[in-house]
Amino acid sequence: MSTSARPAVAGIEVVRARRARIDLLPYILIAPAVVLVLIVTVYPALYAVQISTTNANMIRMATMRFVGAANYVNAFDDEIFVIALGQTVRWVIVNASGQMALALPVALLLNSAFRGRAAVRAGILVPWVVPGAVVAIIWRYMVDANYGVVNDILLRLGAIVEPIAWIGEPLPSFVVLSTATIWAGFPFFAITLLAALQAIPEDLYEAARIDGAGAWQRFRTVTLPLLLPTILLLLLLRMIWLSHSIDLIFLMTNGGPGYNNYTIAVYSFILTWSQLELGYPSAMVIMLSAVLLVASAFYIRSIEQSREWM
């Protein structure tokens, strides 16, 4: 019995030894980071969900009560929320695609050899490093109806007969805001694309040249496919940032004229900032986050597919 039982006992010992030697070190090493993330990200997010089911207002926290899904349901009866929802989509699509449309040719230019390239590469970052508040002030005064340089130039050129209140009109105000946002945001795209361009092996271009491919064909068949994952990732990041950006919109236009430049982020900020509301704005941003999460999941899947396609 003892001899026949020996292999079985040995097997149990191996299992025990394995159990005794659990590789916990990686878990211990990442534990501080996990704790930190739980404290600064997960807990506030869960708290925001909890707040969104109440009528919380900073002035009346003592009388805060549970309202269930009322904030979520009522949002769709709120004319301003519905306006802001549509304008969030417009804001994100126009600005993300605008930044990409400007950044790609700039990145291609910066990737080519010319005199003073280093200086231009450094200079291109200037709009990106200027703080949002400063960008807003610069652009607001450039397009000011009374003293702005844009109106002054157009008047001198005879292009207009009287000053235009750029940020006092629905469409021009959106154009000005988008121009300022594209100007301030495109360098990040351009520099990231430049890094991706420099990672493309020169051999591929050489092979294409040998095969008789012209510049456009080389761009279409070599550059663009290899840049695509970077482009898609950049667009995803930018769409997320833009969907909750408020600085330029708020500082340049207060979301106006009327509600013409309200986005969900701006509307929730205005409610929190001026009326000290917490419940309803939390519900709005949670809905926005949910939409972004779902959109991001689909988007990441398409990025993966683009990699498989390559």
Binding site: D144, A145, N146, A165, P257
Partner: peptide, 16 residues
């Protein structure tokens, strides 16, 4: 009213 009437707050009005 001034062309920038729709966007003017008191600093712009003071300047005006």
């Amino acid at each position: 009213t001034q062309p920038s009437a729709l966007t003017d707050r008191f600093p712009e009005l003071f300047a005006g």
